[in-house]
Write a protein that binds this DNA or RNA. Structure first.
Length: 364
DNA sequence: AATAGGATCAACCGCCCACTA
DNA sequence: CTAGTGGGCGGTTGATCCTAT
């Protein structure tokens, strides 16, 4: 059951707008405004156009202060940062760029910026398996890793909080399942609440079982404990990473359109060590490697992409100390990636040192 | 100069959501 | 409560321009 068309498509002009039509529309709106009714507007303005077409023409081309032409480097950064955070929410991104339209930004991203970013990546990362889609970009610098993943009982979301930052809300809008899972963690001494600090650990490359594992780490009698969850029912992309200072961050909800299960790529920001648990890679503070330009703040970066199929969530509890054995074999590649990512995303030399490192991950 | 292929971008399509009668 | 409507949005299309051969 479709909906009635907004106009009679046989009796409206389509295609490119003529200068005369532009003038008519512009004159009418400047004189009378839109009247809050785009459908009626073309008739009033003497245009044989669909109301939606008029709206689009006005918003994307005719309205005052529209900026055309080359995007600046600053605009590039903003677009990349926001895309990495919120995905293809072009209208929201456009709202941060005065004079730019969502259509402009969308076109710019699809035709230029995405390629520009890909060109900056090392070849191994360009493999199709890695990126069913971008983004790859982190938020604007400076970066800090003293962010904590916390859970608010009143919210279906987890939040990253940074106790040292004015900005402390990082909603993970696609991971309501995480809450459910944490609520069902067996033997959990005290469920995470808004004050608890739990850090995210992830696993990657579990392609054999076609699943993705996500867990949380907590201290239990001074022993770091982790929970693993096959989260193949994450239908939307999930993205988390850390920031600091004035910048806030949010999680993408951009979904993959792959059939038969989610198609996620994952970028983890922290430390990765190979665990004893098969195919599990955890991020751990003690096993960091430093990045040039980050001062004495050590960070690591890990990118992965997996395909996941539906399966039941079976939380398990593991002692993380058992996982801290060898380093991920792809670490060197990861380092290379970080290097390129760093060049890509970090123009500022300043990056304040922070005391506590926590894991920061983001996923697609 | 001709042509094919790629890049660009304005415009359209169809879906979703909020609002209203 | 429900159906109809319009606005808004993201994805896609196709005409045009550009570039390499």
């Amino acid at each position: 059951m479709g909906r009635a068309p907004c106009c009679d498509k046989d009796n409206v002009k389509r295609g490119p707008w003529s200068p005369e039509e532009d003038a008519k529309l512009k004159t009418f709106i400047e004189k009378y405004g839109t009247g809050g009714n785009w459908i009626a507007l073309p008739h009033k303005a003497g245009l044989k156009r669909c109301g939606k077409s008029c709206r689009l023409r006005w918003l994307n081309y005719l309205r005052p202060n529209i900026k055309h032409g080359e995007f600046t480097d600053d605009e590039d950064k903003i677009i990349c940062s926001l895309y990495a955070n919120i995905g293809s929410r072009w209208s929201i991104i456009a709202a941060q760029l005065p004079g730019r339209t969502d259509n402009d930004i969308k076109n710019y991203w699809n035709t230029k910026l995405k390629k520009k970013l890909l060109a900056m990546l090392p070849s191994f990362q360009k493999k199709s398996s890695f990126f069913p889609s971008l983004p790859l970009h982190s938020p604007a610098p400076p970066y800090r890793s003293d962010l904590f993943l916390t859970h608010n009982n009143t919210s279906p979301f987890y939040n990253f909080t940074n106790p040292n930052s004015m900005i402390n809300s990082l909603q993970i809008t696609s991971t309501t399942l995480v809450q459910d899972h944490v609520n069902n963690i067996p033997n959990l001494v005290s469920p995470p609440d808004s004050n608890s600090l739990i850090s995210l650990i992830t696993s990657i490359n579990n392609t054999e079982n076609n699943c993705f594992n996500l867990g949380f780490q907590e201290e239990y009698n001074n022993i770091p404990m982790g929970y693993q969850y096959p989260t193949s029912d994450v239908k939307e992309a999930m993205l988390m990473f850390g920031i600091g200072g004035e910048v806030h961050d949010q999680v993408s909800t951009t979904g993959s359109s792959s059939e038969g299960g989610s198609c996620l790529s994952q970028i983890s920001y922290g430390n990765c060590t190979k665990s004893n648990y098969e195919n599990q890679y955890h991020i751990k503070q003690e096993d960091q490697f430093s990045l040039q330009g980050f001062g004495d703040q050590s960070q690591s970066f890990m990118i992965d992409h997996n395909n996941y199929s539906d399966q039941k969530i079976i939380p398990k509890r593991y002692n993380l100390k058992n996982y801290e054995s060898s380093v991920h074999s792809n670490l060197e590649e990861v380092k290379q990636l970080i290097g390129s990512s760093y060049l890509l995303i970090n123009n500022d030399d300043e990056c304040k040192t922070t005391h506590d490192h926590k894991e920061i991950c983001y996923h697609y």
